[in-house]
Amino acid sequence: MRIKRSVLRQSYPFLFVTGLGQMIAGLIFGGMDNYLNEAPGLIVLIPSMIGLRGNIGSALASRLGTATHMGFISSANAWNDRSKSEMSTAIVLSISLSAMAGLVAFLSCVMLGLDHISLGNFLFISTATGLIDGTLLSLMTLSIVFYATKYGADPDNVAAPALATAADIITLGVLFLVVIASGVVP
């Protein structure tokens, strides 16, 4: 058996930098402790909200990348019908699946007989986060694809990894703000 040094050399810097990005996400998560204690069941939402955003975002990134390679989107013509319809699809998916996450989180707490915040609170927090976050990340994905194409990089190689890390940070940040705004914790 031997260790493939070239893989270590190429992957370690990437993993290390995404780790630093995850520390920012950790910082936000760690700052939410009081809210998580005061709003029982809220924590149930968090992994699926982060996961959904990662899935929807990376699918959008690779679809926009493909559209760029096929010539439907270019740096000179980035804001067009094709990119708008791709982005609105991602936003619609983000809102509807987030609402579903809120509902399932509520139901799972009820079924397990655990303390929980009201269904209204679950739905408000998940849907508002899905709307704001989905919109922000879609715009961000388009700009990454735009700048990658402009400077001659292949968006397929850049967009998805950049987005995966950003998605965690932005989702937790938006969720935190929405929780504060919802007034679920006095």
Binding site: V44, I46, P47, S48, M49, A101, V104, A105, S108, L112
Partner: peptide
């Protein structure tokens, strides 16, 4: 795919809870 990811996410969330 998204629905499966959602359910696994809720499972992870309940373990945290």
């Amino acid at each position: 795919v998204l629905l499966v990811a959602l359910l696994l996410g809720i499972l992870a969330g309940q373990i945290l809870n």
